[in-house]
């Protein structure tokens, strides 16, 4: 399983990468860590004319805390997220999730931006962008624009990015006081794609939950907010009755599709189990 032939250029600047993307629109792929793109090339699922290697663009490799948000450069690797003290302090769910992505050798190369731009429905980061209400800065020759993650994912490997655009940075609003969050995924073996996985976040005043956000991955063609379940939990204490109502909503919220090993019914059942566990962790 060898990759097909392609041209290769190491972009020396963001402007050059955007120019190449524009020039070869539709026939070029951005190569970041390559941990999804190279297997796709090996399996000949993708046959681009040109790979634009952006690995030298160090300005895209950073984790920065501002007054209002955590900004993660698109080239930041899963291993960088896993080890970042700022991420652990502000968003421990991201630290936990990073450690669940494939294996150490893959986390050393795979990037957060690459995972989001690819929009694999089974990947952790796209769902995290929904749960934590992130926004994404896209760059192209036409300039930059910032889009909310909510409207970014359109389907299996499909996003709102134009052919000449690339992901530059990821913006995560700092958590409001009283915010609790939880992450979990169910896999047969460590490092496998999840059968189902979710991020849950909510604000807690006293015992009452508000602004609940629940994002699932690995269940449908794209990462999803479970809006029915979110509404069912808002204004409650996350008690057993509220959790049961939220679990009931997941059938309509997720409408799971089968993967190679699990039926939609299995995925729905396990998603309900996972939701109850994660809500319990918000306590």
């Amino acid at each position: 399983m060898k990759a097909p032939s392609f041209a290769y250029e190491r972009a020396e600047s963001l402007a050059r990468a955007c120019a190449l993307l524009h020039q070869h629109a539709g026939n070029a792929r951005i190569l970041a860590g390559g941990q999804s793109l190279i297997p796709a090339l090996n399996l000949r699922l993708s046959q681009p004319d040109l790979l634009i290697d952006i690995s030298q663009l160090n300005e895209l490799r950073h984790i920065t805390v501002t007054a209002t948000e955590l900004v993660v450069g698109a080239l930041t690797r899963h291993a960088d997220i896993e080890r970042s003290a700022d991420v652990k302090r502000l968003f421990p769910v991201l630290t936990q999730a990073a450690a669940q992505i494939a294996h150490p050798a893959i986390r050393n190369r795979g990037t957060m931006g690459g995972s989001i731009a690819l929009a694999d429905p089974a990947a952790e980061w796209p769902a995290a962008t929904l749960a934590l209400d992130m926004s994404l800065t896209l760059a192209s020759e036409r300039g930059e624009r910032r889009v909310p993650a909510d409207s970014f994912f359109k389907g299996i490997y499909e996003t709102g990015m134009a052919q000449d655009e690339m992901l530059k940075s990821i913006h995560i609003p700092l958590p409001a006081a009283g915010t609790r969050s939880a992450f979990g995924e169910l896999t047969r073996r460590s490092g496998d794609y999840a059968i189902t996985g979710a991020f849950v976040t909510a604000r807690k005043s006293g015992a009452t939950l508000s602004a609940t956000r629940i994002a699932f991955f690995g269940v449908a063609g794209q990462p999803l907010l479970a809006r029915g379940a979110m509404a069912a939990l808002d204004g409650t204490t996350g008690d057993a009755a509220a959790v049961a109502r939220a679990q009931a909503c997941l059938a309509a919220d997720l409408d799971p599709i089968a993967d190679l090993y699990n039926t939609p019914a299995t995925k729905l059942h396990l998603s309900r189990v996972l939701l109850a566990r994660l809500v319990a962790q918000l306590a």
Partner: peptide, 23 residues
């Protein structure tokens, strides 16, 4: 040859990577 088995693990700049998922 698609990143699953780890037989091709080598070090790049001191960090382990998949030799089959790196050009």
């Amino acid at each position: 040859e698609h990143g699953v088995c780890g037989a091709c693990t080598v070090l790049v700049n001191g960090e382990i990577v998949r030799g089959c998922l790196t050009l």
